[in-house]
Design a protein around this nucleic acid. Sequence first.
DNA 1: ATGGCCGCCCTAGGCGGA
Length: 270
Amino acid sequence: MTSTQSPLRVATWNINSVRLREETVLRFLRGHGPDVLCLQETKSPDSAFPHDGFEAAGYVHRHVRGEKGYNGVAILSRIPFEPLDHRLFCGREDCRHVAARVNGITVHNFYVPAGGDVPDREKNDKFGHKLDFLAEMRDWFGPDGDAPSGPSILVGDLNIAPHEHDVWSHKQLLKVVSHTPVEVDALEAVRASRNWIDVARHYIPPEEKAYSWWSYRSKDWSGADKGRRLDHIWVTPDLRDGLTGYDMLRDVRGWEKPSDHAPVAVELSV
DNA sequence: ATGGCCGCCCTAGGCGGA
């Protein structure tokens, strides 16, 4: 029986190639020191995952699911965990989910499909895939689904910025994939499936802008600040009273050769 | 105010990202 009162810190980061940015991840681990780091878009087959550097940095527990070139998720931890079975979505073998049980808490790491350019499933299969993926998540966590029960944390690049101030311009992004009402509704249905708490908005007032992603295309990403909050940390209501902190690590987006996503992190006392 | 930028792949233009 695990019994701790020490804080558990969990971070999530779309790293956009873990092999290209191994040193960047190590810099983050040394500086921020989360207990658990969930990565998305590792873009690495498992046989080529850069285990050695993370091992040396103390993240000796790892659960990785990668494929060549696309997608890929991983959980790195300096505390022991029980690897859990991943779930396949939309009948595909792609690597968009991985899970583990840490100190009695189930941690789900997701990379939701981006959805392509056109927000219409009749014209764009990728958008249909995104909506179908979200519907399967909703059903899996819902009353008739068989997702693991008990205290849980759901993190990842969910590729949707749900609230008005999760994007730089609500009005200008209403028809842009990541902020369309149909996607926002689909994500809300996932959230409602277990009454997940959106930890960022638990701490940040709704009228305050909050972003985790800025396009590579902007010459001055920070000055222009046309971001979106695509990366999320949700917890089940039984963990609400354990929440002790939340961070969006914007500075990391400004490091040398950065990912276009910044890490976000939660701390809880469990 | 939308730009055009990244990273990947049986190395070079095409795909996916969002």
